[in-house]
Write a protein that binds this DNA or RNA. Structure first.
Lengths: 199, 199, 199, 199
DNA sequence: TATGAATGAGCATTCATTCAT
DNA sequence: CATGAATGAATGCTCATTCAT
């Protein structure tokens, strides 16, 4: 009788092992040999489940981002907040995480670095999806605010800019090693002062 | 008497050769041997003028950024414009350049990629300086606008955010390969609608 | 099923090729590329069997020393000799070898040179082992001599010194390019005149 | 009027600068460029006073050894001692020095390392001279001891061996990183018990 | 007599991917 | 299905010495 192997499970095992190793030592130090050893499969098998090393890294990124998004969704709806608070929370979540997320942050930073020096169409696609997620979130908050009469109509024209802002602050955090919390808070509060409907 | 050599000139020659090669094939494919050959000096001499390869790349970056800044400064003051127009021009300059600047953009993108995967204190320092330049520009425009009674006082609390926005849009341009022109225009116009003093 | 390779054999093959090359041109001129070519494997494979180049050299040293020790052991027990004769033979073996052993001597000399300019803990360990071998030999001869009533009891306090002497004469042979045979013979004979029990 | 330069003085200056640098960072890290800078002369000039870098190192070694010998001579005659004490002192001086001499010891060790991997006839010559110095010292002590009736006649046949011993213990100190004090003391005391005339 | 600019050979090591078994 | 042995390209940096001025 042939051994039935759960292909999907094996793929997950490899991704899991890779995730572990990446969190430990970073993407650049990840070797296929070590992934194979940690996952308990042979080097050759890796290539039955993934195209190449980049493909593995990519899968791990996907898993982490998804998890990250779930985490964000879980926390963001916890309480009743004003739109201002929700957006502030969003920025806080992305720019001020600590602990395990710091490591993941480094992972994401490394991913972006690779991203900028590669031309993978797949990555572009994935980036668009992530962007859409964030976009949807900001959009829904703003639209909700408008619907509630909390924000002025024109607020919706700021959505793309707010999204860009978030990435921009991330960029400064990374390249200038500075804390950006007070900066983005001042910015957002000022924006909301301008777009909140005066009662 | 010893041969008198214009050290600064030679350094410039080497940097120039490197610039050429980087523009042609990118930072990662740059080899010291080729730089030496192109600059018409020996490999050994390279190291009389630069600490190491990274140092060369860094110098070329510096030269390009400086040139870029000069170009920007020259164009931005060409006409009398409103603050809105100046800021729009600024974003346009950074995000919509074409021709040679597109290639330089790739160079800058590669630099940022390296930046994100290195921990060079020198790079951080340099990034801070570039940041300061851009900051000064936006600041002066906004402050001028406020002084002229064109903008409301609170506008100055948006400066950091505007700067972040610019980098964020650059980020999307790079990672999503999309045109961001209409996005940032809508955003900026909306912002200025909010902060311009109604007459 | 995967190809089964005799790892130990391959390691030996590489070491053998290295030995050949070292004997031919010395340690310093040994290149990994040449080792690979001579051993008939790829450069990459070398590193499946050895940590690094030093590791290869070290293994070759080990093999040679072992062989040298075996040779010594084989010869030293050939006949029934007095302790004096055994020790003299020992010194003779180490200090007066010719032919292939001269080349190996150069190898050993080069090894010692590297030894003196490195701080490898592994080398120290290995040196201790070699030292122990020689020590054991001298010890057993002397103790046997004492047991047989051939030597006085105090002879055993000379063991460390005799061992040092041997290395010292080697040192002079190397640094002064002089023949030390008559010197060490005179010394040893005098010592034995003093410690042999007069009958 | 031509500038009169004291050639010998300049040579000394260069040697002095080299000595400083060698004591600081070792022979291998000594660069001619740095010597030139420290000595306040041009790189080219160095070669007016020395054949090559090795020649410089060699001169510095000579200076140090001479100084070392003077130091030894000064201390060894300080008191009235028995031959046994003198020889013990000699070994102690060579094998147990501390402080500044530790650094010089490293220098000497480095020199020996170079010695073993070079074939310079000049070095051989110099080594012979050093050997002769040490030889003379041991000889004079032993002969004096014999003349005084302190030692038996045959003692003089141990001279070469004692000299070899000293180098041998040095060798073990270097290659096994062990303290050799108790070893050489036990050895020497045993020897002297054997060769001192019983009264 | 002094300068200091220029030279350029030489080499260990990593690791993603393949494919014979 | 699985294995794991084998591949091999690719590159920065040092520094003693020379010699044109």
């Amino acid at each position: 009788m042939a051994i039935i192997v759960d292909k999907a499970q094996k793929r997950r095992d490899i991704a899991l092992a890779s995730n572990e190793l990446i969190l430990e030592k970073g993407i650049k130090k990840l070797t296929v040999a070590e992934v194979a050893k940690t996952a308990g499969v042979s080097k050759g098998s890796i290539y039955d489940y993934f195209q190449n090393k980049e493909d593995i890294v990519f899968e791990v990124i996907r898993i982490n981002i998804e998890e990250y998004h779930n985490e964000l969704m879980a926390k963001i709806n916890e309480e009743n907040k004003s739109t201002r608070q929700k957006i502030l929370f969003l920025f806080d979540f992305v720019l001020n995480e600590e602990g395990i997320f710091d490591i993941k942050h480094n992972f994401y930073k490394e991913y972006v670095s690779i991203n900028l020096s590669s031309d993978s169409q797949e990555m572009v696609q994935f980036n668009l999806e992530c962007s859409k997620f964030f976009n949807g979130l900001v959009s829904s908050f703003i639209e909700e605010g408008i619907a509630k009469g909390e924000l002025v109509e024109k607020s919706r024209d700021l959505i793309q800019g707010l999204k860009a802002c978030e990435k921009g602050f991330l960029f400064f955090k990374w390249t200038e090693k500075k804390e950006v919390a007070s900066d983005f808070r001042k910015f957002l509060n000022t924006i909301f002062d301008l777009i909140e409907v005066k009662k």
